[in-house]
Design a protein around this nucleic acid. Structure first.
Length: 320
DNA sequence: CGTGTGTAGGGAAAAGCCCGGG
DNA sequence: TCCCGGGCTTTTCCCTACACAC
């Protein structure tokens, strides 16, 4: 098989300006270090010959570089030794599997734009921005050793391998995603063009795929074909049933990369992660107090309502 | 002890997108 | 190549319970 293109350190490196670097906390810097070391190890395993200068050009942050250069010195002793050394680094810094297992955050709220040079998206808060940078680091982890391209997640990696195997490629000219056949690409392109050929005759909602429309129709008919064999509860979508079944099985596939706590659903993990980041995206309309959970702010707002009613009552009844 | 808050468990509904098979 | 069914993932909203501080 022909190598598609040679990989460079730039392909796996994540650049921070001093300003961006200053926004990261200790654990984020640590994650950065782990990701960079892992990326370098991928390159080494693929036979990448580093030049010290091009690595250091990208790694000019604090004493991280001494660790990186120790690692790179290890390479010069031979790839095997280098990998052993990297394993040692891995042990020193905990289980990096957890890092690579973390799912990338894909949604951003465009409010106060801070531009991410990596992918050109706008990020609303500084904390979100630094999180986003971390996310981009994580995205660089999956490297296809066969053709030396990097991919955002396992799915695209596997898909890419498939395409390599079949020797053909249908790539979206807008986002670069690759598909195994033309019709998949056509369908995908609709997500960019906004084309939605299947329209619900009841509510007018439109969908890209006929199966999506059928799924949607169940919300009108109230049909719930998926039933839990343990408690009999029914659901309109199989995935909702699976989610429910985890309450019986106790399965908790979503693990917090920071503290290891596991959750049964993705959204619970994301909610939990805000306890680490300190992110409080929900604000009370009355007093501006911020909360990490939507329901917490609503509950809090209820206390204002209660006070208002109490005040009104006191005023009316002459009490005070 | 009551109140407010932080946090987590879980239900419900829905949508987006991809894959494999016919 | 298209259609279809199925599956995975994510999002949003909600209610609730428990622990804890004040």
């Amino acid at each position: 098989m022909q190598p598609l293109e040679s990989v460079t350190f730039e392909d796996v490196a994540i650049d921070f300006t001093q300003e961006e670097w200053a926004l990261l906390n200790i654990s984020q810097k640590s994650l950065f270090r782990d990701v960079m070391l892992e990326n370098i190890s991928h390159l080494v395993s693929m036979g990448y010959q580093h030049s010290k200068s091009d690595v250091l050009l990208h790694l000019e942050q604090e004493d991280l570089w001494s660790e990186v250069s120790r690692f790179l010195q290890g390479q010069s002793l031979g790839r095997e030794n280098a990998l052993k050394e990297q394993e040692m680094v891995t042990k020193q810094h905990g289980n990096r599997k957890e890092t690579s297992k973390a799912k990338p955050v894909t949604s951003h709220i465009p409010e106060k734009p801070t531009e991410c040079n990596d992918i050109g998206e706008d990020i609303n808060h500084i904390s979100t921005f630094s999180q986003h940078l971390i996310t981009n680091m994580k995205k660089k982890l999956s490297v296809n050793k066969q053709c030396k391209k990097s991919f955002s997640d396992k799915f695209y990696l596997n898909q890419h391998k498939q395409i390599n195997k079949r020797g053909k490629s249908c790539e979206c000219h807008l986002c670069g995603k690759a598909f195994s056949n033309y019709s998949s690409l056509r369908r995908h392109e609709m997500t960019h063009t906004g084309e939605k050929p299947y329209e619900c005759h009841i509510c007018g909602n439109a969908f890209i795929q006929s199966s999506d429309l059928r799924k949607h129709n169940l919300t009108h008919t109230g049909e719930k074909p998926y039933e839990c064999h343990l408690c009999g509860k029914a659901f309109s979508q199989s995935s909702n049933l699976r989610q429910h079944e985890r309450t019986h099985t106790g399965e908790q596939p979503y693990e917090c990369p920071q503290c290891g706590k596991a959750f049964s659903k993705c959204s619970a993990l994301r909610r939990h992660e805000r306890t680490h980041t300190g992110e409080k995206p929900y604000e009370c309309h009355q007093c501006g107090k911020a909360f990490s959970q939507c329901s917490a702010v609503r509950r809090h707002e209820g206390t204002h309502t209660g006070k208002r009613i109490l005040n009104a009552f006191s005023k009316y009844s002459g009490l005070r």
